[in-house]
Design a protein around this nucleic acid. Structure first.
Lengths: 348, 348
DNA sequence: ATTCAGTGCTGTATCGATTCAGAAGCTACC
DNA sequence: GGTAGCTTCTGAATCGATACAGCACTGAAT
């Protein structure tokens, strides 16, 4: 087998501790002896202190876990998630801390096992869908935790996010202000296992995903304010957060009789899919959410939330815990970005 | 302190082994006893077997390291890298294996330390620039290794990539076939620390980065074949793989007298930057490399290489080592994709 | 000559689990 | 009744390092 620290110690004729010091605390021994030890180590083919053993003894790992409550590839597929990760990685890099991306099986038991097996000093959870059991598993391990979904943040958890409802209200108010009254709201997996297309949702709050919940509620608020009651609004479900899924979901609605004059989507990606389906110059007003890079190119009206900043803060909250726990909950600002994809109701 | 497995064992009055079995090998004890143990564990607040200790004892970790030989945020900034990661994550997910993204300090000594400290079962190295010392550190640890840069792959290493030179030759031949003779080649960090803008490069092979090296060589091949010698070609250096850096680097060249009629970039991102700088309908022919999503929208002529497949194969080579070591080196196919960004030389 | 501080190194305890050979108890069958 | 064969559980050894108290020695100050 591979030589261990002990073998090197034997070869040189010193104690294990000294060899350990040669690697980790060079100031604790003479330069000459250190050179001799490193030399012997090289000769023996000693690969250096084992990181696992070192972590065990030291009591910390030097890595934080990043969890996406969905397929791991979501993290690299969704443009907003990618920028979030970019932010996380910047701060991690400053702290010489690694990022452990843990794939989360759908099966609850296996998901818990995945959390339990992750060798990390804390978790950063990017909330996509239903994550309560994941958060529970993390809390059970007693590890520090930062989430991006407000409703789910426990008292000891740190949190960074936006006021989803108010942000959604701001775009919706803009659209309502343009005169739209026949509107559709488009979300990803509004209800679990719901088929793509229009959906019956008794109240916006019935959507289990916290972000969807918040955004639909905000949309509803703004339309209620101009006299459009919830039941008069069409809710459309997309089977996934992708342009294709959005286009497929919205197509029947646009083709139906009495189609909406505006579609408010819960994400830019979905909104872009609506534009794909509607075609340019259709007169349909479309709004998105997040303000990803593609939104600007497409002239999409949307709500900007600071993606990288969200990631940076998440990591910072984990790696530089605030002295005052009250500072552990951060609400980021959002901005309504009006572009060309929304306009007045066509006369026709 | 937190209770350990031993504490649970004491509480229930069984041996440590039995508690361990309750967690990891449920078939080794009666259901009744197992329930009793898990119950006691819950009561005591035992967080479950410590992943670090478990890894130490078991001898493996259940994670693979992913290294970018540049800032970690590059991984999330460059669209090609993102898709590569998406591929890696898909296969990792199938194997219930986590991904450890390790930030690599520029300082060589600290970079080695970062590699040495990573608790992983193997490494996947996405080669951006100079990585020889990083690969050396990994080999010294005796861990399996997959790289994406051919020149640097040691005999025992696995490798997945493309024939950079032949791929580059194919776009360049296309551009040459359109009649272009006054051309510029644009690369990111062609020489370390070189300023942005035109550059003196004695031979394509003098570029230290292996991919740049390969691509410039391929470009040179194709132009040599139509009688344009290397010294007649302008090589331009961009300070970073971004649109902005590319635009800044190419601007003086386009503004100079005797500007090129075509620019061949070493990546799509750079090519898009050239288009930004040149403006639409400039008559300038521009080609890219990789075929990222944005390339299609911009009508960019480019060489497609299968990004996700590259990632998937990298991970697969690590997680399902081929029986025959000869299968450890994979060369992926590339395709010339001709779009509207290249055309005949304008008369003027 | 004696104390003191400082350097350089050693030994032992410890981190928290897994592994595996084997003991104990229990059923079953000839 | 004895032995074989299970299932269930135990104990000791082990994984590979780090932390810390303490010992021996050196050189300077008292």
């Amino acid at each position: 087998m591979k030589p261990t620290l002990q073998d090197v110690a034997n070869a040189v004729g010193v104690s294990r501790s000294t060899v350990s010091n040669a690697y980790s605390r060079p100031d604790q021994l003479s330069a000459a002896l250190r050179a001799k030890i490193l030399d012997a180590a090289r000769r023996l083919g000693y690969p250096g202190p084992d990181p696992t053993a070192r972590s065990l003894r030291r009591g910390f790992v030097g890595a934080i876990g990043v969890l996406f409550t969905s397929e791991l590839s979501y993290a690299f597929t969704d443009p907003f998630a990618v920028r979030f990760l970019a932010g996380v990685s910047q701060v991690a890099e400053q702290h010489s801390t690694s990022l452990l991306l843990v794939p989360l099986p759908h099966d609850r038991e296996r998901a818990r096992a995945a959390v339990d097996n992750a060798a990390v000093d804390g978790f950063c959870v990017y909330c996509v869908g239903d994550e309560e059991h994941v958060l529970g598993a993390i809390r059970d391990r007693g590890l520090p935790l930062v989430t991006t979904a407000p409703a789910t943040a426990g008292p000891a958890d740190r949190f960074v996010g936006i006021d989803e409802r108010a942000a959604a209200r701001s775009v919706a108010a803009h659209v309502a202000g343009l005169g739209h009254r026949r509107v559709a709201l488009l979300g990803d997996t509004v209800l679990p296992d719901a088929p793509p297309g229009p959906l019956r949702l008794a109240a916006p709050g019935d959507a289990p995903r916290p972000t969807t919940h918040g955004r639909l509620s905000g949309f509803a608020d703004a339309f209620a304010a101009v006299g459009v009651p919830w039941p008069a609004i069409t809710v459309v479900n997309a089977a996934g957060n992708s342009r294709a899924a959005a286009a497929a979901a919205i197509a029947p609605v646009l083709a139906g009789d009495d189609p909406p004059t505006a579609v408010l989507a819960c994400s830019d990606v979905l909104a872009l899919g609506v534009l794909d389906a509607a075609g340019p110059r259709s007169g349909l007003s479309v709004s998105g959410f997040d303000d990803v890079a593609e939104a600007a190119d497409a002239g999409l009206t949307t709500v900007r939330q600071p993606a990288e900043e969200k990631g940076r803060l998440s990591a910072a909250l984990l790696l530089e815990p605030p002295a005052d726990p009250a500072d552990g909950h951060v609400l980021l600002p959002t901005d309504l970005v009006v572009r060309t994809s929304t306009g007045p109701v066509p006369r026709s």
